[in-house]
Write a protein that binds this DNA or RNA. Structure first.
Lengths: 147, 147
DNA sequence: TTGAAAATATTGAATATTCAAGAATTGAAG
DNA sequence: CTTCAATTCTTGAATATTCAATATTTTCAA
């Protein structure tokens, strides 16, 4: 007599698990590079978003860098201490705070960008051009379909 | 005179960012479902790994569920209190602790599995069969190429 | 215009995670 | 054997994150 059909797939087959695993690994690699400048990944994201020179509100930033509000507030506090960014009250809506990148922040951001580009190149090498762009496409579309 | 070429892609184009975003979203959805049973995603993963009935050491488990050792120890402490799992010292290597799932754990795990299957089905519907399996394939291969 | 509801950001307490150190056991070289 | 290094897990202190509550400002309906 045959075994009953396997009804529960192992965890390693779940999309949620694969995403977590891939994210963890890629993030670990990026972390490693950015640690050369002693900066956590989230701070790099913040600097990168702000490096358009425009003012961005805390809510906008929180969405963009995938952090919730209180966590962002506390991280920004640290970055203000390090004079990487600064706060300005929004003149049009005084509930809001606009964040700007400082000159020092811009300099740091450039260094971080090149470290990040190193990583992307490393991925392209070991994983391949085609796979990378296809994966990006699929991820974007998954994110879209989840809203 | 033309602008210099844009040298820094926006953060939303980085693979690391897309992975983080997709992971966050899918995880949020799964969390929402599992919260019906009041169980965090990591505990579901632990139960699922242990549900093969074999004993798994803490180190093995930590790798499998993407948690580092101290975090896992403390989570297991909670699960032991809830009598979902139990510890047995490995008779062959007394440095090791073997974790087992309890009967109560098995019952809970089944309920959680069906909640998780609901989610996977929901993804299949909105995102499509083909995209899902292609995405899984690419993620597996990315993970492979990162070792 | 006024007052209630919504939006925005921060704070503080509770909770969780991480880092570094410690305890126990095993392995292995001398 | 004995001793020293490596492995495995846990603990406690430091750090970070989250939840709930608060303060401020804006919006909008009555």
């Amino acid at each position: 007599m045959a075994k009953p059909p396997k009804q529960n797939s192992p965890i390693t087959e779940h999309l949620a698990y694969l995403l977590a695993q891939a994210n963890r690994e890629i993030n670990r690699q990026l972390e490693l590079r950015l640690s050369k400048e002693g900066v956590p990944v989230e701070q790099w994201r913040i600097l990168k978003v702000l490096s358009d020179g425009e003012g961005h509100s805390m809510g906008e930033l929180a969405d963009a860098v995938l952090l919730n509000h209180p966590t962002l507030t506390k991280m920004i506090d640290r970055m203000v201490s390090d004079t990487l960014v600064y706060r300005v009250q929004d003149p049009n809506d005084r509930r809001k705070v606009l964040m700007f990148i400082s000159d020092r922040g811009k300099v740091l951001c450039k260094k971080l960008n090149s470290l990040a580009v190193d990583q992307e190149e490393h991925i392209l090498e070991s994983y391949g051009d085609k796979s990378t762009s296809e994966l990006k496409r699929l991820l974007e579309s998954l994110i879209d379909s989840s809203n």
